[in-house]
Design a protein around this nucleic acid. Structure first.
Ligand SMILES: NC(=O)c1ccc[n+]([C@@H]2O[C@H](COP(=O)([O-])OP(=O)(O)OC[C@H]3O[C@@H](n4cnc5c(N)ncnc54)[C@H](O)[C@@H]3O)[C@@H](O)[C@H]2O)c1
Ligand SMILES: NC(=O)c1ccc[n+]([C@@H]2O[C@H](COP(=O)([O-])OP(=O)(O)OC[C@H]3O[C@@H](n4cnc5c(N)ncnc54)[C@H](O)[C@@H]3O)[C@@H](O)[C@H]2O)c1
Lengths: 215, 215
DNA sequence: GTGAATATGTGAAAAATATCACGACTTATC
DNA sequence: GATAAGTCGTGATATTTTTCACATATTCAC
């Protein structure tokens, strides 16, 4: 693939930049500096310039970046024109929230089908997404390569194995289980309980000094 | 505070270790090695040993770690005995999911109150947590120092300001807005749309080589 | 035009994080 | 009690990420 040399830390920030640039364009702004971007997305301006520089010289010295050009560039880079289909497994509290939320608003991903073990849920739909019984996973999944996991932790390993057998290559895992996958499958863990605990830990153990604010 | 020298990357992993150790104890295991831990939490064993070493010598060479001792140590370190009160702002799709979920299962945090702008929601409760109208924020918040933000992005800045004025020091922000806070307030952003986009980006641009799996 | 202000792109340095690899010690076995 | 196997703790090293700081180019006001 094109540029394997883009640091992961940079890649993770790209969608953030894209979203903000999109907002700028809607607001009718035509140019933006790394400093302005920095204040908006809370990333150091040098880091932003460095991030952009991996893709070549996108800006102009003394001017900044042209919003339309930059946006167009990122649209291609982030494949914002192709829609990636996503499956959601586990239509409980979290899963229902995700189905109701329209991920496609400003986005290139779409949940196209959902699965649950509860027979009362299968056959219905939420937010326009059909819900099937988990037994139908193999036949209904089709060619979907990305899955969101919002099932009980106990079920995570078993379902993961089925997803992987069916060719899923990316999993966004909301269960506390650390699932095992082959090396060609990528898992991103989002562990909400841990995020909350870590925040509390930082508050108690890393007192931030009160610096001078603009009063 | 005690140990300001613990790297942030380490601190973020502590709740993960704690949870796994807790499971081990429930299963009746008395000892564990960094290698076993590594396989379970998917963190390199050297990293685990290094993480633990910031707290001193917790293990025994040739033996590993005593589960009970280690767990007790982390319980103290992570303040698992004190309960931290948390407020939730925005009882919509996501907020409702969090209220229904019992964060206290294996945890030292508890959502004690929720707020919403919708008058139909205020006065009710979900998962035993009372929901107040957002107008009552200042009078009902009490001494809560941590808040979860699940409101529309447009509202984020205004509500953040009110939370900060009331003394909130930690915010778990689920809105796409990058909020501004004084230096003594800590914000953790959890941006689900971006997580999904980043996962898709990695899949398309960082093909993982299929290494030999145990067949 | 000219000078002041602005802002990029990047070499170099710093900081943070992860990993290697091995000495030292423990446990288990016979 | 000697030998083998197992495992920690950590110095050293590697990798990744962030930040500094400035030469260079552009814009803007007059
Ligand atoms: N809700 C939260 O706020 C929250 C916070 C942190 C972590 N989590 C984690 O997210 C996951 C989902 O949480 P939740 O609150 O939505 O749980 P939930 O119990 O509300 O939903 C789980 C859903 O999965 C379905 N299910 C169970 N087994 C299944 C299977 N084998 N195949 C398909 N579907 C199956 C259930 O029918 C249910 O609808 C859990 O692992 C939980 O630990 C949730
Ligand atoms: N649901 C998801 O899957 C998802 C995914 C990614 C991001 N998000 C983000 O999370 C946030 C919440 O999403 P949601 O799907 O739960 O939205 P939602 O619209 O279902 O819920 C928002 C809630 O906030 C309340 N609210 C509005 N203004 C308020 C105010 N000033 N004070 C207090 N409450 C107020 C509304 O009454 C509503 O109940 C949004 O910023 C959204 O972009 C959600």
């Amino acid at each position: 693939m094109e540029q394997n040399k883009i640091p992961q830390a940079t890649a993770k920030r790209l969608p953030l930049y894209y979203r903000f640039l999109n907002n700028l364009q809607i607001q009718g702004k035509t140019r933006v500096s790394s400093k302005e971007l920095s204040e908006a997305v809370k990333v150091d301006s040098a880091t932003i310039r460095r991030d952009f520089s991996y893709f070549g010289a996108l800006g102009k010295k003394g001017y900044g970046y042209n919003v339309e050009y930059l946006l167009g560039f990122f649209r291609k880079t982030l494949d914002q024109d192709e829609l990636t289909d996503v499956a959601l497994i586990g239509v409980g509290n979290l899963g229902t929230a995700f189905l109701n939320y329209n991920f496609t608003k400003n986005n290139n991903t779409k949940i196209v089908c959902a699965f649950d073990a509860d027979p009362n849920k299968s056959g219905t739909e939420i937010g326009g997404v059909p819900i099937y019984h988990i037994d139908e996973l193999e036949e209904r999944l089709g060619n979907v390569k990305v899955a969101i996991l919002t099932i009980p932790a106990m079920e995570a390993d078993r379902i993961t194995e089925r997803l992987v057998s069916k060719g899923v290559k990316g999993i966004l895992n909301f269960t506390p289980a650390r699932i095992s996958v082959p090396d060609d499958v990528r898992v991103h863990h989002i562990d909400l309980a841990i995020e909350l605990q870590a925040l509390v830990y930082f508050l108690k153990h890393y007192p931030l000094e009160m610096k001078e604010e603009i009063l």
